[in-house]
């Protein structure tokens, strides 16, 4: 399958602090890849580097066959990326519908079909469409965040810790939806601490430790890997 996203030799710094060291990462079209790691492993920074909020000091970011290193976030989103940020980052004083509209911002006006697509995935959002996003429960907000990212029909969906702060049953439900979205042909890069559930739906995975990729391979293999089992799966 052709490569959709490729990070090569990425070294990212915050000031003098070396956050990511020589990171290589790939996501093919239609693939679901997960990026695992604990706190301060550099997972969020990796996503920020992909979407363009943070620029690597050395290394490149390629998307859809183009070198987008140095191009701003707006450009990359136009090329087909979308992100569900860590902690959702909804626009709390705006309604559910308006939040979804913001997801489709670069397309000009959000079309009826875009809303219908998202409402069919998340019928609850249709009910709550005029409610202020800040008044929803955690699980409902996660739905809004995902719906918002899907409004622009992205080629690559980036998800930053989708299980954070959610009850297990909601986490399961969310990952089912991620799987659904993936089966519809969207490439997904999920950054997570919860290795078990992410590997259960992913094609491949990477493990980050203090800014370096220490393990990579097909999801099934990673699930069986000794070190991983001890560190993340508690076995």
């Amino acid at each position: 399958m052709p490569m959709l996203l490729r990070l090569s030799g990425v070294n990212t710094y915050y000031g003098q602090i070396h956050i990511l060291t020589d990171v290589d990462l790939e996501v093919a079209e239609g693939e679901l890849v997960c990026l695992l790691g604990g706190n301060a492993s550099g997972k969020s920074t990796t996503l920020k580097t992909v979407i363009g909020i943070v620029e690597p000091r050395t290394g490149t970011v390629e998307f859809a066959g183009e070198d987008v290193t140095g191009k701003n976030t707006s450009y990359r989103i136009k090329q087909g990326m979308a992100i569900v940020p860590e902690n959702r980052r909804l626009f709390a004083p705006m309604t559910v519908r308006e939040n979804l509209e913001m997801g489709a911002y670069l397309l000009g006006r959000a079309k009826k079909e875009d809303f219908e697509r998202v409402y069919s995935l998340f019928p609850l959002l249709h009910e709550r469409r005029n409610q202020l996003a800040g008044t929803l429960s955690g699980g409902e907000q996660q739905m809004v965040a995902m719906g918002r990212a899907l409004m622009s029909q992205p080629k690559l969906l980036l998800m930053d810790e989708p299980s954070m702060g959610l009850a297990p049953i909601l986490v399961e439900r969310n990952f089912e939806i991620i799987k659904q979205v993936h089966e519809a042909g969207v490439a997904v890069l999920v950054v997570e601490q919860n290795a078990n559930i992410s590997l259960s739906i992913a094609d491949r995975g990477y493990v980050l430790q203090t800014g370096r990729v220490v393990l990579t391979g097909p999801a099934k293999d990673l699930l069986e890997h000794e070190d991983l089992k001890k560190a993340y799966l508690g076995r």
Partner: peptide, 23 residues
């Protein structure tokens, strides 16, 4: 308007707004 909503979104959370592609 679209611009008005983008203004509100940017006022509330500038980074999240840019993550939506808003300039």
């Amino acid at each position: 308007t679209r611009l008005g909503k983008a203004m509100r979104a940017t006022s509330y959370d500038r980074e999240a707004a840019s993550m939506m592609g808003i300039d």
